[in-house]
């Protein structure tokens, strides 16, 4: 199994570098941008209570979904995922992000497992299992992204 590892080793560094840039975008959009962030800097302690969003987010949601629209986390996210123009861009970004993150994470996990599992059969089982999980997550993730906002 050592023969094709050079390409994967190289890819691991490339995906890692890509992930830095994608994570910066993801982090900015989810946590910092006042219109787009679906996570606010607010602690909600009451069960069922929703976080309060900044004016920018309320305006953004109402501009798209009508003046009476509720501003909940779902609607804030839908500004991007249900937008007629930008949805394709954001869905594309999310799918690319998903693929790159899964490859990077599960290749890394396989490196760690190869180091600690010494039995060849055990290694094979661990590899097969982990990549099955990764494939399952890829399908679940792609489904979530593609169907969001339909």
């Amino acid at each position: 199994m050592a023969q094709s590892n050079a390409l994967n080793w190289f890819l691991h560094r490339i995906t890692g570098t890509f992930l830095i840039f994608m994570l910066i975008t993801h982090f900015w959009v989810q946590h910092y941008d006042h219109q787009a962030a679906s996570v606010t800097h607010e602690v909600v302690t009451e069960k069922g209570e929703m976080p309060d969003y900044p004016e920018e987010a309320k305006e953004g949601v109402r501009a798209r979904l009508g003046p009476d629209a509720d501003v909940t986390p779902y609607q804030v996210v839908m500004q991007r995922l249900a937008d007629p123009v930008y949805a394709v861009l954001w869905k594309g970004f999310n799918i690319l992000f998903l693929i790159v993150a899964l490859h990077h994470g599960f290749y890394g996990l396989n490196n760690v497992m190869t180091d600690y599992i010494r039995d060849p059969m055990g290694r094979l089982v661990a590899r097969a299992l982990s990549w099955t999980v990764a494939l399952g997550l890829l399908i679940i993730g792609m489904y979530s992204v593609i169907t969001a906002g339909w």
Binding site: E42, V43, Y74, I140, G141
Partner: peptide, 21 residues
Amino acid sequence: IWGLKSLSDPETFNALIAKYH
């Protein structure tokens, strides 16, 4: 990724995000 399955249902998604707060 498992948690984001809830994107298909607004109520579940909102409940989850509220919990994350």
